[in-house]
Nucleic acid binder design. Structure first.
Length: 583
RNA sequence: GCGCCUGUAGCUCAGUAGGAUAGAGCAACGGACUUCUAAUCCGUAGGUCAGGGGUUCGAAUCCCUUCAGGCGCGCCA
């Protein structure tokens, strides 16, 4: 067996790839070699039961090509494949050929890789490519509620994931800071509000006015007309209207910032919808010049009938712009400014048609980079069966949710670990972690029903569970003042317990899972992975004492603990969650 | 009417680009703290993978169809 040279920089950012190893081995066979390497690679799968093996080749498809029975092929391969230092001799089980990783080799390669790369385990070198991520985008003058949580945390997580994989990310908060809702708000302010009330109540007062407007507008439709007029005045630069707009925007931004601070989320750009106002005429001109605009029912549209979509509205009949107009302008601006290789839009699935439409318009404008625009949709948030509605005041404010979670965490700490230092900080990190993990733990496309009970449950598959597991691991390492570079000579042979081997196999999967999460724009793949890892580790923790064993075993187990601790911390950070050392 | 998404245990969800006996957590019940943090671990119980067809050696996964829920289809964003 070749010894690993830990000083060899090749080890950095290179990860064990068993699918590749098994594929190479299979390619030495003359019959199988007829298939493309990639095809073989993709045939391999993880067996459902560990007893069977670690990686399997189902021989059904080969059976058609080689014109032999699957079990015969498996049997023949078992007998003819050459040995590999990475693998135990393969075993045919019926129509499957099962491979088992050499446990010592696996332990050595994976754990050394983590000892050497540390927080870089699973990362990729810089690519020199930009990815623009448009996320969060709350509406000014409306409260930041749980409905905005998905976009905010999914976008933030994708930002972290792609950065980890070597991309330069640009996070853009495309604030909803323009539109008729400001007319409504000004109308309501003029009628039922006052400067002092707004100064005191801030966004709550704005929300009250907004709700009040809709209540009154139902009885008196003329109010809608008044609101449109006020918005017109904003657009035409009326001083009073603009001043109010600016004021409301500032109040909102301050309020949003509280939430972003709690979540520790930052943006590279806060260019909202209003930012593109002066670029809209040029977009309309360009569309006109390219012969894409068509008049229809008084409005200007891009006809998309031949692509089986409804038309994309560009200008209203009164000449003002629309959602798509602004998105197109923003995309052109971003391409010019950032020259992205991909631009992601993290919004609700309800908007998918809108994105398909204007992506097509960009394509029709002749921009080949239209293919780099990606809509990353997610499902709806309901409130215990009912729809969230700012207008009806039926919302759970995000800040309230986060603070309640923090408060609850503090109570738990006082009960379980009253002597903990910096309780407040730990409570914040854990409470927020619970909320964020909750939003990132299921497939983003699913609709979710918000429930206080679930959001504040910290047992089982939750953020606090992962953080707790991390803190446990830290606790062990702290007791021996663990230093990674002092443990490079650990003996992987002694890690023979089932629980330990299972943990190592799970650690091995980390880089692969990050890649999958990026490819599918799906942070929940990392969430699921971390739950798996924590479960395996907690079994190990229960079965295998670390600090009481003799030196060789202790050293090896400490390395394992360090590897898990590091991977949990990195994985959580990719979700935008902090991992405290004690809790 | 047309289109998109969803339907797996009482509840919330996994299920790896069709594969070997469908897995977790919560809730319920029963165990494990003189031992590295019990926010943990172990066990019991719980399933006609919405229904029906089809393709295949093989379907929760692909196709068709029915049903249920959500969403979208021109001047909101």
């Amino acid at each position: 067996m070749r010894d690993i040279d830990i000083k060899n920089s090749n080890l950095l950012l290179k990860y064990l790839d068993y699918r590749g190893i098994v594929t190479d081995l299979l390619c030495t066979n003359q019959d199988i070699n007829k298939l493309a390497r990639e095809e073989i690679y993709n045939l391999l799968e993880y067996p459902p039961d560990e007893q069977l093996g670690d990686l399997a080749l189902p021989c059904f498809k080969l059976s058609k090509i080689l014109r032999k029975a699957p079990h015969v092929i498996a049997q023949e391969l078992q007998e003819s494949l050459p040995a590999s230092p990475y693998l135990e001799p393969p075993k045919a089980t019926g129509p499957y050929l099962n491979f088992r990783f050499n446990p010592e080799r696996l332990a050595k390669e994976v754990l050394v890789s983590i000892l050497v790369n540390r927080e870089g385990y699973g990362a990729r070198p810089p690519k020199g490519q930009k990815i623009v991520i448009d996320f969060s985008a709350p509406n000014i003058a409306k409260p930041f509620h749980v409905g905005h949580l998905s976009s905010t945390v999914i976008g933030n997580s994708l930002y972290k994931i792609f950065s980890f994989l070597g991309y330069d990310c640009v996070g853009i908060n495309h604030l909803g800071d323009w539109g008729t809702q400001f007319g409504k708000l000004i109308t309501a302010y003029k009628k039922w509000g006052s400067q002092s009330a707004v100064e005191e109540g801030l966004i709550k007062e704005l929300m009250r006015l907004y709700v009040k407007f809709h209540e009154e507008a139902e009885k008196e439709p003329a109010l809608e007309e008044e609101a449109r007029e006020w918005f017109n005045r904003i657009e035409n630069g009326d001083q009073e209207a603009l001043a109010l707009w600016k004021w409301f925007k500032e109040i909102s931004l301050e309020e949003f910032q509280k939430v972003y601070d709690l979540l520790e989320i930052k943006f590279d750009s806060m260019a909202g919808e209003s930012f593109y106002n002066d670029q809209l005429p040029a977009v309309v001109e360009e569309l006109k010049a390219k012969g894409l605009l068509k008049e229809s029912e008084g409005a200007l549209i891009v006809d998309l009938e031949q692509y089986e979509m409804p038309p994309c509205l560009i200008l209203k009949k009164d000449g003002s712009s629309l959602y798509a107009t602004r998105d197109i302008a923003a995309a052109l601006y971003r391409k010019r400014t950032y020259d992205f290789t991909k631009a992601l839009y993290v919004t609700g699935i309800a908007q998918s048609l809108h994105f398909r439409q204007w992506f097509k318009v960009i394509e029709l404008m002749g921009y080949e980079w239209a293919k780099d625009l990606v809509h990353v949709p997610f499902g709806w948030v309901n409130l215990e069966g009912e729809k969230l509605s700012t207008r009806k005041g039926k919302v759970v404010l995000l800040e309230e949710l986060l603070k309640t979670a923090i408060q609850k965490t503090l109570e738990i700490i006082n009960e379980k670990n009253p002597n903990l230092e910096n309780k407040e900080e730990v409570a914040r990190v854990v409470g927020v972690g619970a909320v964020v993990f909750g939003a990132l733990s299921v497939n983003r496309i699913k609709d979710v029903t918000f429930s206080w009970e679930e959001a504040l449950n910290f047992d089982g598959e939750t953020g606090p569970y992962l953080q707790y597991t991390h803190a446990r691991a830290c606790s062990i390492l702290r007791k021996v003042a663990f230093e990674p570079e002092e443990h490079l000579d650990f003996d992987p042979k002694v890690l023979t317990d089932q629980a330990a081997l299972k943990v190592i196999k799970t650690l091995y999967l980390f880089p692969e899972r990050i890649m999958a999460a990026a490819a599918e724009y799906e942070p929940s793949l990392i969430s699921r992975y971390l739950i798996d890892l924590a479960q395996e580790f907690n079994r190990f923790y229960h079965d295998c004492p670390v600090l009481v064993e003799e030196q060789t075993l202790q050293k090896a187990r400490l390395v394992l603990v360090y590897a898990v601790k590091t991977t949990l911390a990195v994985g959580l950070s990719l979700l935008g969650i902090k991992a405290p050392e004690r809790m």
